[in-house]
Design a protein around this nucleic acid. Structure first.
Lengths: 131, 131
DNA sequence: ACGACTGTATTAGTGTTATCATACACTAGG
DNA sequence: CCTAGTGTATGATAACACTAATACAGTCGT
């Protein structure tokens, strides 16, 4: 199985699918800081998409501090994770939590059910992590 | 203060800002099932946007089962919340939780911090709820 | 120095989205 | 009935998103 898989008919943009998978695998530990990623052209060939599409995904990830691009060398998971300042992190978490809370409530779930879902997701992520 | 407020320069579409606020206020209890919303034209005038923009927001919300549109009468919060089937709800919660878990991990937060953020968000929502 | 690999930049084509304008159809009250 | 309110439907236009094509520039091993 390849590192990444793409579904061109899912409606979600290819470049975003790439970004999501890098983020997910980094969170899950399948990708580790410093590790080299497939080159733009190589990945483009594997997934049968235009190199510019991969370049866009990588470029955005670099802008977000997730990966590091080195001209002539390749793409790498950022060696030193950004380590967001405490205040900013708090604000970010608050935003994420509110979004999830509101959307989860739409399903009719109660607090316990919502928290349980998050616990499960975290446990699932931790599966592959030495931490 | 008006029921809704809009920021035309935020980059997020106006119709989506409307949708988000209806959903949020419903989750928070500021809007209650059965309650009447501002008419399309009235809200359009208040926010200084085209009625079709409000119509789109309302139409999408109706499609999602959040509100009810009655020609010649007005727009109302759906009296009986949709109550998603258990399986579908579980799947939806799983998706939401995974997204939050992955994005929260990006900030460098640990499990406890992430769960605490969600707890806070739920508590904050419950503030205005009789439930 | 060369060649084969890396990322970068610019431009363009295509489709979708967001907003607006205008005309239509239903409902309720006088 | 008729009027003033409601939502509905259609089409136009501008902006944006996504993908692609092509040419450029740095790195590294031979």
């Amino acid at each position: 199985m390849a590192i990444f898989t793409i579904n061109p008919h899912s409606g979600v943009p290819v470049y975003r699918q790439i970004m999501d998978q890098v983020r997910y695998q980094l969170a899950a530990g399948t990708l580790a800081p410093g590790q080299q990623l497939p080159s733009i052209r190589e990945l483009a060939h594997t997934l049968a998409v235009n190199p510019a599409t991969i370049a866009k995904a990588y470029s955005e990830l670099e802008h977000d501090g997730v990966i590091e691009l080195q001209r002539g060398r390749g793409a790498f998971i950022h060696a030193h994770p950004p380590a967001m300042p405490r205040d900013q992190r708090r604000q970010r978490l608050r935003t994420l939590a509110e979004r999830m809370a509101v959307e989860a409530r739409q399903t009719g779930a109660d607090d316990a059910e919502i928290c349980a879902a998050l616990d499960q997701a975290l446990i699932h992520l931790n599966r592959r992590r030495p931490s």
